[in-house]
């Protein structure tokens, strides 16, 4: 693999741009296929290009026979995103675990003491009001959102944006009673019954979690479960041996 090719793939991943690396098995010849552009002689054959575009759309890597020989199509699609509202103790456990699992993680908290960088090394911490930050981040179908502040004036506006988005998972920390009160408040601002029903609350799989780290595990497990059930290709591991 040429170093330039490797760097181009890395640049695409860093800017959350999907790319397919086309590689001929016989001699290692390479091409890069993006949504709108192509870089490399190998992808000039129409059948190679068509196969690469299919891999780009599905996010699945595969080996295929083409007019240019046997090629491996290596699909690099943007990592799943996790938006965490509330730079709280549970977030301190959840964020590194989610990063290790392959999520791009963003933490939102307008409160300076919570959002302090030293609490979340190597992670983007956005010190803004959740609704403004959420509007800017635009949760899409590869995004999970979880609110952890326990404070309606921070959680509710974030939930409003999340419930109107394509986010595949929306979770919110709080007891059943808290969740009922949340329902009343969100209904008042126009969230429908069906929209509200998308919230996983109480959040996380019921594994009897008590400590912040245990609760983080239950939340991450529920996000992974929801993602797998949604049938998205990105980073879905094969069945264990």
């Amino acid at each position: 693999m040429k170093l330039e090719t490797l760097k181009a793939v890395q640049a695409a991943r860093e800017s959350r741009r999907a790319v397919v690396l086309v590689k001929r098995i016989a001699d290692g010849a390479e091409a890069l296929v993006y949504g709108e552009s192509v870089d490399g002689e190998l992808a000039s054959a129409p059948d190679v290009l068509a196969a690469a575009r299919a891999a780009l759309a599905s996010g699945r890597s595969d080996t295929v026979e083409t007019s240019a020989g046997k090629v491996f199509l290596h699909a690099f699609v943007p990592a799943r995103r996790l938006i965490v509202v509330g730079a709280v103790h549970i977030a301190q456990a959840l964020v590194p675990m989610a990063a290790m699992t392959g999520f791009d993680v963003v933490v939102i908290d307008p409160r300076r003491a919570f959002a302090a960088d030293h609490r979340f090394p190597n992670v983007t911490v956005v010190q803004e009001w959740p609704d403004e930050a959420m509007e800017r981040l635009k949760p899409d179908a590869t995004t999970a959102v979880v609110t952890l502040t326990h404070d309606p004036k921070l959680d509710d506006p974030a939930l409003e944006v999340a419930l109107k988005s394509d986010a595949y998972y929306v979770g919110s920390l709080g007891s059943r009673r808290t969740h009922e009160k949340r329902k009343a408040r969100l209904t008042e601002v126009g969230i429908s019954e069906a929209q509200f029903a998308r919230i996983h609350g109480p959040v996380g799989l019921n594994i009897g979690a008590k400590s912040p780290a245990e609760i983080a595990i239950s939340i991450l497990a529920e996000i992974i479960q929801t993602h797998a059930a949604s049938g998205q290709p990105a980073e879905r591991p094969a069945k264990a041996a």
């Binding site: 890395q10 959350r16 290790m100 392959g102 791009d104 993680v105």
Partner: peptide, 17 residues
């Protein structure tokens, strides 16, 4: 992109460097 232990290409570039 978050720096994770799974960033194999990043590791390859760093080692090359």
């Amino acid at each position: 992109m978050t720096a994770t232990s799974e960033d194999i290409l990043g590791t390859a570039a760093a080692w090359k460097g």
